[in-house]
Write a protein that binds this DNA or RNA. Sequence first.
DNA 1: AAATTCTCCTGAAGGC
DNA 2: TGCCTTCAGGAGAATT
Length: 270
Amino acid sequence: MPELPEVETTVQAISNKLLTQKIDSLEVHESRLRYPFKHNWVKKIDGQTIVKINRRGKYIIIKLVKGALIIHLGMTGKLYFANPQDPLKKHDHFEFKIGNMNLRYNDPRRFGCLIWTNNDPLQHALLINLGKEPFSKTFSGDYLHRKGRKSETTIKNFIMNNKVVVGVGNIYANEALYLAGIHPKRKTCNISLKRCDELAYSIKRVLAKAIRSGGTTIKDYFSPSGEPGYFKNKLYVYGRKNESCRRCKNKIKRMIIGQRSSFYCSHCQT
DNA sequence: AAATTCTCCTGAAGGC
DNA sequence: TGCCTTCAGGAGAATT
């Protein structure tokens, strides 16, 4: 399940290979993704040169000379490099033909998307209202404290809200709350500035560490060159129900918050 | 209006 | 062995 580290890993990998390259053609095999792909976009993309690849939240932005592509990996989306003669795999929905390599998109659940925009992608309706980037200087304990001082929702829902901060999905929300020692069900408005500082720092730290490990592979994620992420071995709580807390040895507990599995240590998190 | 629930989808896992 | 149910969750849409 791609979260920010997996998207960042993907962006770095494809950027290394594709910058300044020309897209010979885009072939769409299945347009029924989260947002249907419009086939008249193809002629706007074919023959264009890639000038920049970056991300905003979990959206991958491929800037072309004119216009840009926006890709979201959804739950199970993967971009990977293939040789042109390799047969398509099940759920390969589209591919870019670039010189002697193909960049293919595989997504069993089809929660991802491919969108073309003529305008500034950051102004696109899907991106314009996104919250702060976790690595930005202005994403701080002070920001969380101010933004959340009237919020009645749980802190876990709060940090998973893309209008607050982008890129924090279920895995890293659980991990960051553990590192900060905050119970996931605690009401946001009841958290002190000092603890918000610890939480903002923990979010930055867990995301940065996961990027250095190449992301987290639970079962779906692989990098464009086929490497799994190695952060799974470093998880403190996610997926560790009934295993012992790495700090206090008590059993990790599981509860549902906002219809998502939440893992925590009731001794270390209050 | 913020908070919560619903929805899309497939594959894996578990129960009987 | 095989069929059924349940679960996984990103995030916009719908609902409360």
